[in-house]
Write a protein that binds this DNA or RNA. Structure first.
Length: 556
RNA sequence: GCGCGUGUAGCUCAGCUGGAUAGAGCGUUGGCUUGCGGAGCCAAAGGUCGCAGGUUCGAAUCCUACCACGCGUACCA
């Protein structure tokens, strides 16, 4: 509907002034109309004419050419043209589905990326939910999606944790792992990670041992060792980490990952590639390490292979992305991480661009901020006071119990997901459990309630098929808001910004409540028409929430 | 120091590809109320859009400088 109108208005402008105009319809305040365009203001400069004169002429033309869709077209202010749709056109707009601009494309999306041997903190929860929402948007827009979860099962953090695990076990005694109850394992491993990290920073002897342990883990992978005592400890506790992740994803009801990609698998190809490209001059040696010098491009120097000969995250990232490219030949590869990783990713991409430009240009890095608790308290994974992902969920449940209603798990999840989703991706977000679970205000539970209430109206009467014509003002306002759905989703998809959907759904619910306050549905002489509006509203809410991975039950 | 990001109402945030009177929620104040799920609706108070310039018919939005905070700045990820 919108693109069609834009094209017709551009054609009208061309007819009148013989210029190519880029017409973009916006949604003005309702008092002004359904759509507005500032094309006359845009053209005023190049045509050397008064914008209002242009607008007047264009308005006459629009009334002629678009008579079947536009009921009124008026000039306002300095030269805006405000359009009001006919009831039929508004009905069509409300029925329009979001576009499928990514049809037949393949998107690889990498997100969540928890590291085995490290606790899942609140940031992982955020990145997991954001990734789930973005991948849903992309999928909804027609793309084939491949969800990838990449995690560091090798590297210094593993050395830290493994060192402490061996200490805790009093030596390489894998059998002693059986003594640790299943429920205590995540906490136990988290404690080991903290212990190893502290030792690394404060104890020189321990630091040397940890570096050796790290190397030992790489060797274990190279030799495919599953037998030695050290290897048994490693594989067992790595699995504990994966079990712990699976438990979280299960609780969150996010879409399953298509592939779990451990760093150990990316390392060999990364190492090999960096060495090959070292010979071709893409990388260079420096102090015994292999680096990419991004300074000429305004970036940093980053180490890809350290002086121990081990690949750093950068080299593994090279291996990972080459593998993605070889396996999927995607149209776009989206990587979602916290924004602290932005600059080193730029270096990685800059280096890849030197030997695989077709891959580099398809990579897109989306970064988000940190999760903080109310009061702006920061959380650090290096210290003991980590707020974990599961603790965030527990905080939401706790806030729910304290409230008058006793929300179910669906509502708890809606609360957390919506609280994260409604912020624009990029900046830090502050999570407030009470606010997220509240049934009033801009919250997930509020929208679930709004949906359930609409369904309960629909359950009271059957709606016969009626044309939505001769709409009364409140009815029309609701239909107008519903008609914004497809455009909103299109925008959220184009920008990969799910929060637009949140903003819209909340406005939609408010519009409905205003309608509902003053208009009887069941039992009214306009019952059929209004039931259809209510159904359309409820369906729109449900569709929008689903795009965010939030359920919309008929009853709460 | 350099790079990236953020700065909008008491709090939490939208708005940022330039447009009409800068919008929501929470909180505060006042009103509606035996309701088709009132978990709502109506209204009020609350803003130098970090500061200063610039571009433009028009700037929260673009540009420059500055201030504050965050992240990054070679062998962590």
């Amino acid at each position: 509907m919108k693109p069609e109108l834009e094209a017709k208005i551009a054609a009208a402008a061309h007819e009148l002034f013989n210029v190519g105009a880029r017409v973009e319809l916006t949604r003005p305040e309702e008092q002004f109309g359904d759509y507005a365009t500032n094309v006359a203001l845009q053209l005023a400069g190049s045509l050397s004419k008064n914008p209002r004169e242009i607008a007047e002429a264009l308005t006459v033309k629009i009334r002629e050419n678009l008579a079947d869709q536009v009921s009124t077209a008026e000039v306002a202010g300095p030269g805006f043209i405000n359009l009001r749709l006919s009831d039929a056109a508004l009905r069509d707009a409300a029925a329009a589905r979001p576009a499928q601009p990514l049809a037949s494309q393949t998107f690889v999306l990498e997100y969540s990326d928890p590291n085995p041997f490290k606790p899942l903190h609140a940031g992982h929860l955020y990145t997991t939910l954001v990734g789930d929402m973005i991948s849903r948007l992309v999928e909804h827009a027609g793309a084939k999606t491949i969800r990838i979860n990449y995690g560091g099962d090798v590297g210094l953090h593993v050395g830290r944790c493994m060192w402490a695990i061996v200490q805790e076990l009093g030596g390489e005694h894998p059998e002693k792992l059986n003594d640790i109850p299943e429920a205590d394992r995540p906490k136990w491993m988290g404690d080991c990670y903290v212990k190893g990290t502290e030792a690394y920073e404060t104890d020189e002897a321990a630091k040397a041992e940890i570096i050796a342990t790290n190397k030992h883990v790489y060797e274990l992978h190279n030799q495919n060792d599953h037998e030695s005592a050290f290897a048994q400890i490693y594989w067992t506790t790595r699995q504990w980490s994966y079990d712990y992740f699976a438990e979280l994803y299960n609780q969150l009801q996010v879409k399953p990952f298509d592939r779990y990609f451990p760093e150990s698998e990316a390392a060999p190809l990364g190492l090999k590639t960096v060495k090959e490209q070292l010979a071709k001059g893409v990388y260079r040696e420096s102090d015994g390490a292999v680096v990419y010098d991004g300074e000429a491009e305004g970036l940093h120097v980053r180490v890809f292979i350290n002086s121990e000969g081990l690949p750093t995250y950068e080299a593994k990232e090279v291996g990972l992305n080459l593998t993605k490219w070889q396996d999927y030949h995607f149209d776009e590869s989206i990587i979602i991480t916290a924004n602290e990783q932005q600059q080193y990713m730029q270096v990685v991409v800059a280096s890849i661009a030197k030997f695989a430009p077709e891959l580099a240009e398809r990579m897109r890095h989306i970064t988000h901020g940190m999760v903080k608790l109310e009061g702006g308290k920061k959380m650090s994974s290096r210290k003991g006071n980590v707020v974990t992902a599961l603790e965030i969920l527990a905080a939401a449940r706790e806030a729910g119990k304290a409230s008058a209603t006793n929300p179910g798990e669906d509502t708890i999840l809606a609360a957390v997901k919506y609280a994260f989703a409604k912020n624009r991706i990029g900046g830090d977000i502050i999570y407030d459990p009470q606010e997220s679970i509240a049934l009033e205000g801009n919250s997930g539970p509020y929208l679930q309630y709004a949906h359930a209430r609409a369904r309960s109206i629909l359950a009271k009467a059957d709606a016969a098929d009626t044309e939505l014509t001769d709409l009364q003002p409140d009815e029309r306002s609701l239909l107008r808001k519903i008609s914004e759905y497809a455009e909103t989703v299109d925008r959220a998809t184009a920008e990969l910004m799910p929060h637009h959907i949140c903003t819209y759904l909340y406005e939609l619910a408010q519009t409905f409540n205003r309608f509902y306050e003053h208009n009887r549905v069941v039992g009214d002489e306009r019952q059929n028409l209004r039931l259809q509006l209510v159904k359309s509203y409820a369906d729109t809410l449900k569709n929008g929430l689903e795009l965010l991975g939030i359920t919309a039950p008929d009853h709460l």
